[in-house]
């Protein structure tokens, strides 16, 4: 009789996982035909039922949502009548009463938007979209202040950014008041101010303590600056790359050395890769190369950039985990 050593004993006393089951079959301890039987033995019925119920709940929610979507689209003309507006108002009142449920809280916020935007669609009032979005933003602020959910409190910021974007597209850019590059930089600056205000009031008020209020303005700054670099890459001119560089260095310094936030650092890394890609595209375009040569140079350099970013991210992450 063979007595298992300590390592084997430890292995034998481990709880079974799916990986262990596969290893048992691969190493020849279990026959392949016994794999399904072993899996059945290890199945926790209560756990399986819990997961099954969750899955079915998800599927039924998706089905009901898609059914609602199909019905609304097929009966769209109903919303072109006064009855449709009354229905929306009633739904909004119902959402206000039941806003302790997350679905009602979010639905209320979206119904405000629907009630602002639909009259233009229904009666053709020629309302200006960015004005409607600004109105939605102001009304959302009142709705969001009373909410306990950070997702709902974030919605006014999203509406504000949407309003700014449409303000640029519908008014500022067509009237040549400023070029696209400057508009993007100003949009980024506004979000940067929001971010700075959030960081300055951190811990003093509970409303903006959620990490989403750091992440979203940061993401908006990055997106505005990237749009600026894209416009610049396609049309030439501007100094957005310089702004991108300054923002990357200062935000990187702040989130690495001052207030350590690894998610923010990752976002800045992705932003850095993207604007360097735009810069690279522009640089390769300046060289007098054939299409194949340009493509080979651009894509292989881009792959080097991505690999360098991944190696940097993983090495730093691993050091953090070790610490």
């Amino acid at each position: 009789m063979i007595v298992p050593d300590k390592k084997t004993e430890a292995y034998l006393n481990k709880p079974v996982s799916l990986w262990e089951l596969v290893c048992l079959c691969r190493s020849g301890i279990l026959r392949p035909v016994d794999f399904l039987r072993a899996a059945a033995l290890c199945r926790l019925n209560a756990e399986e039922k819990r997961k099954g119920k969750r899955l079915l709940f998800l599927l039924s929610c998706l089905s009901f949502l898609s059914a609602a979507f199909f019905f609304v689209v097929s009966e769209w003309s109903f919303f072109y009548t006064i009855s449709g507006a009354v229905l929306l108002a009633l739904l909004f009142v119902a959402c206000s009463f039941f806003r302790r449920f997350a679905a009602a809280d979010y639905a209320g916020a979206f119904l405000i938007g629907a009630m602002i935007l639909l009259p233009d669609l229904i009666f053709g009032t020629n309302a200006i979209l960015y004005e409607q979005l600004f109105l939605w933003f102001f009304l959302l602020v009142f709705w969001a202040v009373a909410s306990q959910r950070s997702g709902v409190r974030l919605l006014p910021l999203i509406a504000l950014n949407a309003a700014i974007i449409f303000y640029g597209i519908q008014f500022v850019l067509p009237s040549f008041q400023m070029d696209a590059d400057t508009f993007c930089v100003l949009g980024a600056l506004l979000n940067l101010l929001l971010l700075v205000a959030r960081e300055a009031t951190l811990g003093k008020t509970k409303i903006f303590d959620d990490s989403a209020f750091r992440f979203f303005p940061l993401l908006s700054v990055c997106l505005f600056l990237l749009t600026g670099t894209a416009v610049q890459t396609l049309s030439g001119g501007g100094i957005s790359f310089l702004y991108c560089f300054i923002f990357t260095v200062s935000a990187g310094f702040y989130f690495v050395f001052k207030v350590f936030d690894w998610q923010a650092c990752r976002l800045i890394l992705v932003f850095c890769v993207l604007w360097i890609t735009a810069l690279l595209y522009r640089c390769v375009g300046m060289l007098s190369l054939s299409v194949e040569q340009s493509m080979a140079l651009f894509l292989s350099t881009e792959s080097l950039l991505i690999i360098a970013a991944v190696i940097g991210e993983r090495s730093f992450s691993f050091r953090l985990e070790e610490k």
């Binding site: 006393n13 079974v16 996982s17 301890i29 279990l30 290890c42």
Partner: peptide
Amino acid sequence: MTTEFSIRQLLACLNV
């Protein structure tokens, strides 16, 4: 998936 079963118990159930 991790159960409270150990590998030893599983093998015993399967007569190994």
